[in-house]
């Protein structure tokens, strides 16, 4: 028992990136344990998914043709049965929104400890997981003193596996108890449409909770106008209703890759970073020199935005409203 079983993810007909990232993570862990990497793909067009997933590093791909889209009751049952069949030491699942919706249940059902949101591992006899705490201000090492573990991996943290694979593709017959399926997915809805597309902008002035009050939004509006830039924001600004949903950058908002991303009063939470780390030049204005955004920024000002932003507006010949 030294194998790793990793479960992939797809949505509306396409595999998600994390499915290839989990191969990289899984291979690393399987090598450290001296075992094989098993991959599972559940639901949808499993045959063509298996073709796509047959990349370097995968030993076996298990296809399970149950359902079209993700349903946590189905996934939980299937993974439990596959786990019994493959008998791995580590079950790797994505720490995606759907991962959050079944990984903890699987761990409980298997009676195996779970560690979530891993950004790295080590294994020399004992599994060691690196994960962050306190809104990414610190990292921790977590040890799992057990023969088996469920670990979820942070999306976009591991490189996507590539290259021609030579995995053995096997179909797995799961026995899904329909009476235990107590939730039904009835559809999908796209949100955040509208007239502005922040992903098209060359320059984004992006505002976060550091702005404190709705009335202060006009300060960053004035900056955006002065610079001919587009205004975007982190999630709390949209949650509070200060800007519309189509301005939100991040995991549940838009992915942006402007030439310049000006992060003003934004801490740089992982779900925010997921949406802007591809920006060419990142500038952070944040009073906290330890805010995680500083690890990503090319340029930073560790000062009060209420002093810096008005001065910047004036530098460009504009007039500050505050």
């Amino acid at each position: 028992m030294t194998d790793v079983l990793a479960v992939t993810e797809h949505r509306r007909g396409s595999l998600r990136d994390v499915s290839f990232e989990i191969v990289t993570a899984g291979r690393k862990l399987a090598d450290a344990q001296g075992g094989d990497l098993h991959l599972a793909v559940i639901g949808g067009d499993v045959e063509s998914f298996a073709d796509e997933l047959n990349v370097e590093g995968v030993d076996t791909i298990h296809t399970v043709a149950d359902g079209e889209e993700f349903n946590h009751d189905v996934y939980t049952q299937v993974v439990e049965q596959l786990y019994a069949d493959v008998a791995p030491t580590t079950l790797l699942l994505p720490n995606s929104v759907n991962g959050l919706d079944y990984a903890p249940a699987v761990a409980e059902r298997l009676d195996v400890p779970i560690v979530t949101d891993a950004v790295g591992f080590d294994h020399d006899g004992t599994l060691e997981v690196t994960r962050e705490m306190y809104a990414s201000k610190v990292a921790t090492t977590v040890e799992v003193d057990a023969d088996e573990a469920v670990v979820t991996i942070r999306p976009s943290e591991f490189a996507k596996a590539e290259g021609e694979g030579s995995a053995d593709v096997q179909s797995f017959d799961a026995d899904v108890d329909e009476s235990a399926v107590r939730s039904t997915v009835t559809g999908f809805e796209e949100v955040g449409g509208g007239d502005v597309d922040i992903s098209e902008a060359d320059v984004l002035v992006s505002v976060g909770r550091g702005i404190e009050e709705e009335e202060n939004i006009e300060l960053v509006e004035a900056l955006a106008e002065t610079l001919g830039a587009t205004l975007s924001s982190s999630r709390p600004i949209v949650d509070a209703g200060w800007l519309p949903k189509n301005r939100q950058v991040g995991q549940s908002g838009k992915v942006v890759t402007p030439k310049v991303y000006l992060a003003i009063g934004i801490s740089g939470a992982v779900q925010h970073v997921a949406g802007m780390k591809g920006s060419e030049t990142i500038v952070a204005i944040n009073t906290d020199p330890n805010a995680p955004i500083n690890d990503l920024a090319d340029y930073a000002i560790h000062d009060d935005l209420f002093d810096v932003v008005p001065a910047l507006i004036e530098e460009f010949g504009g007039e500050s409203p505050l």
Partner: peptide, 18 residues
């Protein structure tokens, strides 16, 4: 079975100009 064995400040990956 799960225990924290270390806490540290993450290494900065960028060389930010302040």
């Amino acid at each position: 079975a799960v225990s924290r064995t270390a806490m540290f400040e993450p290494e900065s990956e960028s060389d930010v100009t302040v």
